[in-house]
Design a protein around this nucleic acid. Structure first.
Lengths: 136, 136
DNA sequence: AAAGTGTACCATGATACATAGTACACTTCT
DNA sequence: AGAAGTGTACTATGTATCATGGTACACTTT
C-alpha cells in the first residue's frame, strides 16, 4: 500500500552507545523533526537490517522498543508505522529521566575537567540544532 | 601520618549508573570543588568498602580508575592521595568525550519528548550548582 | 612482629548486547 | 490458491560489563 519512507541512519559500531539505541535514537529524532510524518511507513525489519548490515533481531528490538514507548505502531503483516503523538510518559517520569541525564552529563564534564561555559555552549548549540531541524 | 579525609558518598544501588562510577564521580567532584584538597588522604579501600557496604574490590576499582585518570596517586602501603592537577587528557579527547556526552543528553531529551528550553534550564542550573560548590 | 595499606589475581553469578537461526500468524500481491 | 513479504516470538551462542567473594603479595607504619 503506502510507500516506504527512506531512512538515513548512520551507525557507529564499537561505540559506547549500543546499536539498538542508536537506531531507536535516530528514528525518534526523525519523528521529532518531522522528517518522518505521522502515519509514514518504515522499512521492514529485514530491509533495514540489510541496509545497516545488522541482524534482523537488532532492528526488531529497536522497533519493539519504540512501539513500547508509543512512537511506532506495528500492524501484523503490514509493517511499522509512525504513531500519532500522545502523552507517552508521566510528568514525574520525564523529570526523573531528565535529572538522570543532567547528572550523567555533569559527571562527564567533571570527569574531563572542562569549564562549565564550554559545556553549556555545546549543549546550547546542540539544542538549537535540534530546534532548527524540527522546523524542516 | 596524615589524617584520613572523611568522604560523604551516597550510593544509589540498582540505578543505571554502576557503583564503581558513582564512587569515582563523587570523588572527582569532591576534588574539583576543593572539598578534597591536593595531597589529602582518602579512606582505605577496606574502610570505604565497609562504610558503603560494598565489596573492597569495587572501591579498589574506583580508586584504580581515578589513579589512571590522574586524579589520585597511590602509595604502596601508605594509602591513596589526591594528586596535583595536570593535563590529564588531550584536547581532542576532551572534545570527543564532550560531544559524546552532549549527544547522549540530546538523545534523552528527544526520547522523553521535552522542550529544549526545559532541558537547557536544567543543565544551566546544574552547572551553576557545580560552580557554586567549586568556591567552597 | 603485627597491623594496615594498595595491588594483583581467580572464580562466580547476573545482566546487557549482538548475532544466528527457526517458526508462526498475518497481509498483500500475483 | 499460492507466493512473497510483513511483524513477532522463540531458543541458542558468544562477548562484555558489573559486582561480589576470596586469596595472596609487597609495602609501610606502629
Amino acid at each position: 500500500m503506502s510507500r516506504v519512507a527512506p531512512l538515513a541512519i548512520v551507525l557507529a559500531p564499537g561505540g559506547p552507545r549500543p546499536i539498538v539505541r542508536q537506531i531507536a535514537d535516530q528514528i525518534r529524532l526523525a519523528i521529532t523533526t518531522g522528517e518522518l510524518a505521522h502515519g509514514a511507513r518504515l522499512p521492514s525489519v529485514r530491509a533495514l537490517a540489510g541496509q545497516l548490515l545488522v541482524n534482523s533481531n537488532t532492528v526488531a528490538r529497536a522497533y519493539s522498543d519504540l512501539a513500547s514507548e508509543g512512537w511506532l505502531q506495528g500492524q501484523h503483516g503490514q509493517g511499522m508505522f509512525v504513531a500519532g503523538q500522545q502523552g507517552r510518559l508521566s510528568q514525574t517520569e520525564r523529570r526523573r529521566r531528565l535529572d538522570e541525564a543532567v547528572g550523567a552529563f555533569v559527571a562527564t564534564i567533571v570527569e574531563v575537567d572542562l569549564p562549565p561555559s564550554i559545556a553549556l555552549a555545546a549543549v546550547t548549540a546542540a539544542l538549537q540544532d535540534l530546534d532548527a531541524r524540527r522546523v524542516a
